[in-house]
C-alpha cells in the first residue's frame, strides 16, 4: 500500500486536483454535482485518453507523435466509407486498427530507421495524412453511418448507462499499461527514452522497439477515430484537427517527461480526465468561452510546474528533518 502511494503520488495528486476543481465548480454552480455531468466528463475524456496513451509511449521513447489527429481523420474516413459501403461491422473495426498500425509503423520507420527527428517526421505525416483523408472522401463528409457499427462502441451499457467506448478505453489502458510494465518491450521502451546508448549496448534492438511504440500510438489514434465516428454517426476529413496537442497536454499533466524515459498510462488518463473536467466545468459555471482557453492554458502550466514545486517541497522537508 505504501509502495503504491509512493509510486502513484503523481497520479493521486492529479486526482486530488480534479476533486478540488469539482468542489469549486459545485460551490459556484450546484448543478455541477449530478451524474450526467460526470458521465459527460468521462465520455469527453475518452477520445483524448485513446490518443494520450499512445502518445505516452511515443514520448517515453524520447520522441513525439504529432500525426495522431490526422491518423484519426484517415481512420474516420476509411472506416466510415467501409461501413457505409456495407462491410461487416467487426471487419470495419479490424480495418481501422490495421490502418492505425500501418501508419504508426511508418512513423516509427521514418524515425528509427531513417533517423528523422520525431517532431519533423510526424509533422510531415500529419500534413500528408490530412491530405490523404480529404482525398479518400473527395473532400465530402461521410454521412449516415450504419447503426449496428455505431452501437458496438456507442451503445449505453448496463452499468449506469455509460457508453461502451468508455469500457473499451479502460481495457485499452489496462493492456497498454501491461505492455509498459510487465513485458520486456515496455522495459525497453523506457530504457530507450532514458538512455538509448546504454540500451543498445545491452543488446537491445532499439530501432524495432521504437517502431513498436509508434505502432501502438497509431493503434490508439485509430481507436480514437472509430469512437468519434460511432459517437457522431458521421465522419469528415477535417476530424481530429489539433487533437494531438490535447493528447500531449494530458500526458504532460500526468507526469510524462518530454525528455523521455518517464511516464505512465494512468497518469495520462487522469491528465485527460482533468482536462475534460475543466472544460465541462467551465461551461457549466457559464464562463466566457475566451476566458476558458486562458484557464485551461494556466492549468497546464501549473500542472507542469507542479514537478518543480514537489521537488522543492520534498527537499525542504528533508532539510528541515536534518536540523
Amino acid at each position: 500500500m505504501k509502495r503504491f502511494l509512493k509510486k502513484s503520488s503523481r497520479e493521486l495528486a492529479i486526482v486530488g486536483l480534479i476533486l478540488a476543481m469539482a468542489v469549486i465548480f459545485t460551490l459556484i454552480q450546484p448543478r455541477f454535482m449530478q451524474s450526467s455531468t460526470f458521465i459527460d466528463i468521462i465520455e469527453q475524456a475518452t477520445i483524448n485518453s485513446f490518443l494520450g496513451i499512445g502518445m505516452t509511449l511515443a514520448i517515453i521513447t524520447g520522441g513525439i507523435d504529432l500525426s495522431v489527429g490526422s491518423i484519426m481523420a484517415v481512420v474516420v474516413c476509411v472506416c466510415g466509407m467501409a461501413s457505409v459501403g456495407g462491410m461487416n461491422k467487426f471487419a470495419v473495426i479490424l480495418l481501422g486498427l490495421a490502418v492505425g498500425a500501418v501508419i504508426g509503423f511508418l512513423n516509427g520507420f521514418l524515425i528509427a530507421k531513417m533517423k528523422l527527428q520525431p517532431f519533423v517526421a510526424t509533422l510531415g505525416t500529419e500534413e500528408a495524412l490530412r491530405g490523404a483523408a480529404f482525398m479518400i472522401t473527395g473532400g465530402w463528409p461521410v454521412l449516415s453511418i450504419p447503426k449496428d457499427f455505431r452501437n458496438i462502441l456507442n451503445a449505453p451499457s448496463a452499468i449506469g448507462g455509460i457508453r461502451n467506448f468508455v469500457f473499451v478505453m479502460l481495457v485499452a489502458a489496462v493492456i497498454y499499461s501491461f505492455i509498459l510494465h510487465r513485458t520486456k518491450a515496455g522495459t525497453y521502451i523506457y530504457a530507450i527514452g532514458a538512455n538509448e546508448e546504454a540500451a543498445k549496448l545491452s543488446g537491445v534492438s532499439t530501432d524495432w522497439y521504437k517502431i513498436l511504440a509508434y505502432l501502438l500510438c497509431g493503434v490508439g489514434a485509430a481507436l480514437a477515430g472509430m469512437v468519434m465516428l460511432a459517437r457522431l454517426g458521421a465522419g469528415e476529413p477535417s476530424a481530429g484537427s489539433g487533437y494531438e496537442l490535447d493528447a500531449i497536454a494530458a500526458a504532460a499533466i500526468g507526469g510524462t517527461s518530454m525528455a523521455g524515459g518517464k511516464g505512465t498510462i494512468w497518469g495520462t488518463i487522469v491528465g485527460a480526465i482533468m482536462l475534460s473536467t475543466l472544460k465541462v466545468g467551465l461551461v457549466v459555471i457559464g464562463m466566457d468561452t475566451f476566458v476558458q482557453y486562458v484557464a485551461i492554458g494556466s492549468v497546464i502550466i501549473f500542472a507542469a510546474y507542479f514537478d518543480t514545486l514537489q521537488a522543492g517541497i520534498t527537499k525542504a522537508i528533508s532539510a528541515a528533518r536534518k536540523h
Binding site: N195, A198, L201
Partner: peptide, 29 residues
C-alpha cells in the same frame, strides 16, 4: 551515458541485458 539507465531501479538495470531469458512467450516478464 553508456552503462546504466537513469530512472531505472537496480533490478531493472541488472536484468536489462538478460531480459529475454526472463520472459514467457509474447515477452511477458
Amino acid at each position: 551515458t553508456e552503462g546504466f539507465v537513469k530512472y531505472m531501479s537496480n533490478r531493472q538495470n541488472m536484468t536489462l541485458a538478460a531480459l529475454p531469458g526472463f520472459c514467457r512467450a509474447g515477452g511477458v516478464m
